[in-house]
Design a protein around this nucleic acid. Sequence first.
RNA 1: GCCCGGGUGGCGAAAUCGGCAGACGCAAAGGACUUAAAAUCCUUUUUCGCGGAAGCGGAGUGUGGGUUCAAGUCCCACCCCGGGCACCA
Length: 811
Amino acid sequence: MAEKVYDFLEIEHKWADAWEASGDALYSAEENSAKPKYYVLEMLPYPSGALHIGHIKNYAIGDALARYMWMRGFNVLHPMGWDAFGLPAENAAIANQRPPREWTLNNIAKMKRTYRRFAFSFDWTREVTTCEPDYYRWNQWFFLKMLERGIAYRKKALVNWCPLCCTVLANEQVVDGCCWRHETTPVEQRALEQWFLRTTKYADQLLDDMRQLEGNWPERVLTMQRNWIGRSAGTEVDFAICGDSRNIRVFTTRIDTIYGATCLILAPEHSLVAELLDSTAQARAKAMVDARAAGGPGDFEKEGFATGLEARNPFSGELLPVWIGNFVLTGYGTGAIMAVPAHDQRDFEFCVKYGLPVRAVISATGEGALEHLETALEIDGFVENSGPYSGLSSEEARRRMTHRAQNEGFGAASITFRLKDWGISRQRYWGTPIPVIHCPVDGIVPVPEAELPVLLPADVRMTGEGQSPLVTAPEFVNVKCPVCGGPARRETDTMDTFVDSSWYFYRYCDPKNGSAPFDSKKIAYWFPIDQYIGGVEHAILHLIYSRFWTKMMRDLGLTQNDEPVRKLFTQGMVIRDGAKMSKSRGNVIGADDVAEEYGADASRMFVLFAGPPEKESDWTKSGIEGIARFLGRVYRFATRNAVSTGTGAADDAVQRKLHQTLKKITEDFESRWHFNTSIAALMELLNELHAHESAISQAAMKETLRALTLMMAPFAPYLAQELWTGQGFAGPVFKQPWPQYDADRARETGAEIVLQVNGKLRGRLTVPHGTPEQELKARAAEHDKIAPLLSGKTIVKVIVVVDRLVNFVVK
RNA sequence: GCCCGGGUGGCGAAAUCGGCAGACGCAAAGGACUUAAAAUCCUUUUUCGCGGAAGCGGAGUGUGGGUUCAAGUCCCACCCCGGGCACCA
């Protein structure tokens, strides 16, 4: 039969239209299925208006997996939605005088066309758009539930303010002291009344449940989360201030070193500064705070000053001077430390600088040999010069000292976390309204559940100035108090958009539910997510918030699972000329453009072929041209061999190659996900077919092409479908059973034995599989390349590995 | 500074359990087809030495050591690149 030209645009558009016409059922998950379920999810995008090649890589991985799992007979849930609230819509609205909603929905429509153009197998019947009231009302509902339980609360606190976003940011959204969206804009500290979610209540669980994730989440994501949560166990101890009834409470993990404390240091923001110090000292502390804020991230010189106060060490009875130090953090522990310069490097630097004494109280051996220290000795060892505790191990001393502090009422064991509560108030319009009302009589009153959703008003003037634009919408702000009926003000801050993405994947399981966020029975079937795929940049943002939200929902009785995601995969970026793609560099590769130029199949296949998916892949024009060439070769080969007249002489060899390929690709899907080698194997198979083209019988040709087509389906769905239909088969190719490999048929007939002398390759020998050791040894010894090298030498040893090699060790 | 990754041809990479280093692709060079070009197909391509050639020999996976019959793979030390954490008491 005549070979056909591979017109990818014609083929891809033809099937895109056909699939579009067949409706949404094609990729719909089954609701009541006897099949095992498989929930595969890619992180939902922000609807910026255009997909780029980095998105394509994310979805190409997930889509290959979804299609493979379908072919393996699973009931696959593969949904997609829109993280549709957020600042860009608002900024665009300010720029073009069009409402954020219109801009957002337009972008969604555009991007959805691109998704369809790429034939990603999303179940659009479950689409979730977070800016729609039928979604965000449940954000509000959850908020009310959390408010009832004290998980949501309001407090005045120093918060991170991004002057470009004109809003507050959570700690997780501050990177190196700068805004996560404006990497060169330092955040400012402002004291504001804000809504918080008590993530710290779950700090222990967030940490401990990581054990369930080990092995299935990338180790570095777990490490980042562990660092972020930052649990440390220690003791809080009170030091009585001389001449005052108050105490200074410090937190330490090394109470065993307390006899070595030579001063106390308070954070400059510590409450005692205002309570006990004169105005000069207060001004110095204030200057320190300001200097620190202005300095930005990075190293800074330790500075401090003595307050003139003294406090008593409750163990030694010694009086210690009280200092203020710029390196003591107000937000961690108690905001005050005992400085033990001999055993803490930071304290060491501070005390040496200000001439405070350094006194060693820990030795490595316990033999009382305390040397003069050039640097802090930060080890566990044996306590010395510590009154009744001298001679104890550090661990034992910590136990006894903590015990005594507790008994005598001047301290307690304490666990401190670096993790802080999640500040969710945003002074912006385009987000979920926080459903509370401020009443001058009744204070903060939750909006009654029956009145949800609190709708975002449509006509609001975007200002981009410090306050939420909602402040300027009187019909929104002015309400009656639900309790007393008197005039009251509605809360005008909106929620952080990370709230939206904290539970969207639950909504996919029951997207139309009007009476609850979801039906718990449906969650019980689909959850946890079997495979989540996204970028590593969300390691301590989205991925920690989602874990918190899941635990919170479980405690509301809505779900059973402790964790939302069983397996996490973080794909590497697509880079270009060694650099990250970004708008500012102008080197972004648009998805629509590559689909037009090379085809959707070639584009997605290329990003998978460029390297293992967890690593960065380099975008090159010649690289994608190579893949496009390969697809063309497959198409032409298949069409010209629809009827073949081959002799059959190569049937065995082709069969073997086919089963080797099936084995390879099946194993790649089941374990490593190194799709670059899967695609290489497909290329090898085609090269083999090509080399023996006229020697393959009609039957073998048909069987091989059929299997090749099925193996192409997860990577190049358009071409696979076209070939499948062209071979006379009906139905969607990715709903066919995945072809099984036969290990016997994959095996080579003969084994090539490597012959070595003293570990150097000197010859080869082909023998039947499983030829025994003795025979291998004998045949190797008489091999014409080996025999001369053995003559006149003493054979010390012969290593034989059946089916692999013979190595003669000679002298 | 600490904790993870990683370093292999001109380039992206492969080598999954310690057993043929460089699969597959790109780029390059030569050739076939063509009036010509594109497309396609064929050949060569780690490197050095000898050879007209088939071939023969040496070296080679960041550097230096080690274990082993055998090391890209394991161990020790170091260098470089990427990422995370970094006054968290």
